[in-house]
């Protein structure tokens, strides 16, 4: 019970931080929204078929999930490098609530932004419906936590906060490029989904019923296995992450 209360307190802090951070709002909502509109200006004069719209929307929801996962891990790096993680582990008596509070805040922040993205683009391109918004939200809700835990190995890297921003930006573009350009197909799809949480998210999105979002290449059972490995591996790794920075004195 104490752990739940502590997690809630950290969640309140981190969710407030996320919603008041212009950079985070831009990265997770502004960037996908502007990109989706700018790349499809012709849809204003020639409205797309629903499958074309939803197929594209799940790609951008995947972008949101991946960026949120990276941002959540980056926030944990910032908490560790700034000494917050160490100090508050002593206050709470355990590290779990700080980490879970951060992940939970990212989860709620993502859901809110995904709903806005789906609703705004749905209205703009003539395909606003409860099913479209619900589908996008379900994809975000199902994939954010495993995708974030899959990225938790980044906490083991000896990266400074300044370097992390650059690495995050480059990796986002690189990962999304190879995810959406069918660089990997066929038999390699399974190992690719295993090492790339963005591809895992995209494949899950195509399995979620409700709208036509494309044809998945990886079966749902394999994706569930990968998701379980992400969750178990990430949770085990987060228990072992050092409290202190190996680069800075805190």
């Amino acid at each position: 019970m104490n752990g739940a209360r502590q997690t809630y307190e950290y969640f309140l802090l981190f969710v407030k931080t996320a919603f008041t951070s212009k950079v985070q709002v831009f990265f997770i909502l502004g960037f996908p929204l502007l990109y989706m509109i700018a790349a499809n200006m012709h849809w204003f004069s020639e409205p797309p078929a629903e499958a074309a719209f939803t197929g594209l929307l799940v790609m951008f929801v995947t972008v949101q999930v991946f960026i949120t996962g990276m941002q959540t891990v980056m926030n944990l790096v910032t908490a560790r490098e700034g000494g917050f993680f160490k100090m508050f582990t002593f206050i709470a008596g355990r590290r779990g609530p700080v980490v879970f509070g951060q992940i939970l805040a990212g989860y709620v922040f993502l859901l809110a932004n995904t709903i806005v993205l789906a609703a705004v683009t749905g209205l703009m391109f003539g395909h606003f419906s409860f099913a479209v918004v619900l589908h996008a939200s379900a994809v975000a809700a199902l994939t954010m936590i495993p995708a974030t835990l899959a990225l938790s190995w980044i906490l083991l890297l000896k990266l400074q906060q300044q370097s992390f921003g650059a690495v995050m930006s480059i990796s986002i573009f690189a990962v999304l490029f190879i995810t959406f350009n069918q660089v990997v197909t066929g038999a390699l799809s399974i190992p690719f989904a295993f090492v790339n949480p963005a591809y895992f998210t995209y494949q899950i999105a195509m399995h979620v019923p409700g709208v036509e979002a494309g044809t998945p290449e990886v079966s749902i059972w394999i994706l569930l296995t990968i998701g379980t490995v992400y969750l178990a591996g990430g949770a085990a790794l987060l228990r072992r992450v050092p409290l202190t920075s190996s680069i800075l004195r805190t």
Binding site: E9, T78, G82, F88, I91, R94
Partner: peptide, 24 residues
């Protein structure tokens, strides 16, 4: 510790609440 970073928008009441409510 020295100079722990807190979000600048965090208010005094948020800090007090955070520490005291998280106290195990």
């Amino acid at each position: 510790q020295q100079g722990v970073y807190f979000t600048q928008t965090l208010k005094g009441r948020d800090l007090v609440r955070l520490v005291l409510h998280c106290d195990h």
